[in-house]
Structure formats: structure tokens, C-alpha cells
């Protein structure tokens, strides 16, 4: 099918000429996704770690809830964030609707459960192996958490990548809370939705190729890091 080759050529052309509109959209996409990822990790990793090492009443139910929340539909999240950030909603006074910040909030809600649920699994395994040694050594809880996260760093990298993948590829939430406003809140996915709605299918697919190539580059880098870690038995 020539649509593939045409779109691929168009994608290459856009990247090769560093098309300024594309660069702006790309920059915002990556910025929004990385910031929401950073915030999600700073919330999600400690929660995942606590769930992994602490036994308390309702802990299993919480883990179940976070596992279920991994499948949160983006449009639902978008709608909820819209209702809260709308001028008529409880946080309307912040004036955040239709800003990149609103998109960060929506993506955080989408990916924090992923970070929590997956890191909890990784750290649970880590805890199983290290528990007796750390007990014997009387390692304080906080130092143990840090050690788990440090030692699980390569497995956690996969967790973080899963979060990034979800954030950067999601459209349903950011189009509602961001509004797909040109030069303000337009990101790769909403641009693809827009071009599709204009019937510019070739350009839409070209943008899709660009998005895909970013994901590929990030994942190859991670794969390479992980492979080198594996050679040192750090995974």
C-alpha cells in the first residue's frame, strides 16, 4: 500500500526539515509526558514500595484497586478532570483548564496506578529476597525502601517506560482537558486526531510514525541498558 510509503516519506520529511510546528508539538508532548511521569513516579514508587513491604488491613484490596485502575479509560479521566477544573467545578478558580498543566494532571491520574501496581510487584519480589538479610542487619524501613528501589532500578525502568508509553500515546484525556489548542495544548496525539478529522490521513499517519519512532528510540535505549545490566546480573 502506497499510503505507508507516502506517510513514511512525509514523516521523514517533517523530521528532516525540523518542521517548526512539528517540533513545537513534539516538544510539548514529551514535556507533558515526562513531567507527568516524574510526578507519578514520585508519588507512585513510594506507595508501590509501601504496599510491597507492609502488611496491613485492606492492603490486598488496595493492590487490587490499583491493578484495576491500570485500565482506567482515558476519556473518563479526561471527563473527571474537566469537571473538576472547569470554571464551574471545585478547582475552577485555579484557571487550569485548557493548559498544559491540566494535561499533566490528567496523565498523572492515568499513569500513577500503573507505576504503583507494577512497582509493587517488582518490589514485592525484591522484598522477598532481601527481607531476612535486612532484618538481621536491622536496616531502617526507609533505608530498606531506598535499597529496594536502587537494586530494582533496571526492573523499575521497565515500569517507568510502561508509564511513559501510556502517557505519550494517550489522546482521550488530553483532548478534553487540553482542548487541542494550537500553539498551547496541541500534542502529537491530538494533532493526529485533528489531521484525521480533517481527512489528512497521510499526514496523520506520518505523525503517527514520528510518535512511534520516539517510542522505539526510548525503548531501544532502555533495552540496551537492561541488557548491559543483565550481563552484570543486576536484573
Amino acid at each position: 500500500m502506497s499510503i505507508y510509503s507516502d506517510s513514511f516519506a512525509a514523516a521523514f520529511g517533517l523530521l528532516a526539515t525540523a518542521d517548526s510546528d512539528l517540533m513545537e508539538i513534539l516538544y510539548l508532548s514529551i514535556n507533558v509526558s515526562l513531567l507527568s511521569l516524574a510526578l507519578s513516579c514520585s508519588i507512585g514508587l513510594p506507595i508501590g514500595a509501601i504496599l510491597a513491604i507492609r502488611q496491613f488491613h485492606g492492603r490486598d484490596a488496595l493492590v487490587g484497586i490499583f491493578n484495576a485502575l491500570m485500565g482506567l479509560p482515558p476519556v473518563v479521566v479526561g471527563l473527571l478532570v474537566y469537571l473538576h477544573l472547569s470554571r464551574s467545578g471545585p478547582f475552577g478558580w485555579l484557571g487550569l483548564l485548557y493548559t498544559p498543566q491540566a494535561m499533566v494532571i490528567a496523565q498523572m491520574i492515568l499513569i500513577t496506578p500503573i507505576i504503583i501496581a507494577l512497582s509493587c510487584q517488582v518490589l514485592e519480589d525484591m522484598h522477598e529476597g532481601y527481607k531476612d538479610f535486612f532484618d538481621s542487619l536491622v536496616v531502617p524501613k526507609l533505608a530498606a525502601l531506598v535499597a529496594y528501589i536502587v537494586d530494582a532500578r533496571y526492573s523499575l525502568m521497565t515500569v517507568v517506560l510502561a508509564g511513559f508509553g501510556r502517557a505519550v500515546s494517550e489522546v482521550g484525556a488530553v483532548i478534553i482537558v487540553g482542548g487541542n489548542i494550537d500553539h498551547l495544548t496541541r500534542v502529537m496525539t491530538t494533532a493526529i486526531a485533528l489531521e484525521t478529522s480533517k481527512g489528512e490521513l497521510e499526514l496523520a499517519l506520518a505523525l503517527g510514525f514520528v510518535l512511534l519512532s520516539i517510542s522505539l528510540a526510548v525503548n531501544f535505549l532502555a533495552q540496551w541498558l537492561k541488557a548491559s545490566a543483565k550481563r552484570r546480573a543486576y536484573v
Binding site: D132, F133, S136, V138, A147, D151, A152, A233, Y234, V235
Partner: peptide, 19 residues
């Protein structure tokens, strides 16, 4: 805990940190 801090234990299958 203070007493355990003055003790060490070597396990049959040691836990080796990923470092």
C-alpha cells in the same frame, strides 16, 4: 534491636545485593 545490631548472621544461601 540494639542487641541485634551487635550481631551478624550468615545465611545458607546469602542474599547478594545487585551491586
Amino acid at each position: 534491636q540494639a542487641i541485634r545490631q551487635r550481631q551478624s548472621m550468615v545465611f545458607q544461601a546469602p542474599t547478594i545485593l545487585r551491586r
